[in-house]
Amino acid sequence: MAIFNPTDTALSIKNLTVSYHNQPVLWDIDLDIPAGVMAGIVGPNGAGKSTLIKSLLGLVPSLSGEVMVHGRPYATQRKRVGYVPQRSSVDWDFPTTALDVVTMGLYGRLGWLKRPGQKERHEAQEALEMVGMSALAERQISQLSGGQQQRVFLARALVQQADVYFLDEPMAGVDATTERAIIDILRRLRDAGKTLIVVHHDLQTVRTYFDWLLLLNVRVIASGKAEEVFKIDHLRQAYGGQIALLNDNESLMFSASKVK
């Protein structure tokens, strides 16, 4: 379990509002996430989970709001932030190799004119090894399976050596083995003092994976330590009637989540 240090806030959001075609997608989000936690963002479809991450990173324009990373504005802290987008956000038929995609994670550090060289390729190779993909470094990305593509994206973020990582549904559409492998890597990162902020859709695994939770449905329903947030009242508030099914399994879910 990570040690919560109240003085160090990895991510602080104040008064964030995002709208799309006059429809509020995120409304007045206030949030502080402490450093060194594995934080899950959970909520129903259309709750604005991905939009939250994208607006923090400046990929979606926001009406208002202030985002601080480790106490300073995000724009000045880009190098300390890593991003793993949804796998479906790119065209995997792009002519390139797994190693090359991972090397792209270093482009920010290289600046405008410098090209990736031997050193960068070596770092990328190491990141691929961390995600168990070193044998497939020279493979065309179009020939990778969904789980392997997700690992490549993870390696590309790892190579950035950031302090705060945003991951958009990294477990979507991957098999159980890959999910296990990804969660192991994320835990290792957390234990090394990094902060991981993960959009997640599977309520069954939430308590097992995360030590900090944000329950979102356009507004913040609840946020804080996972055991305080993952309560049936909060879930019902976030999911509305859809949570009925969960009620029967509640005891089962909580006993399962004790397995660490």
């Binding site: 990929l59 991003y83 987008p85 790119v90 792209m104 482009y107 590309r156």
Partner: peptide, 13 residues
């Protein structure tokens, strides 16, 4: 190359 492959990621860099 990066903007062509993954423009959003390029922006985060």
């Amino acid at each position: 190359k990066l903007v062509t492959f993954d423009a959003e990621y390029a922006r985060t860099l």
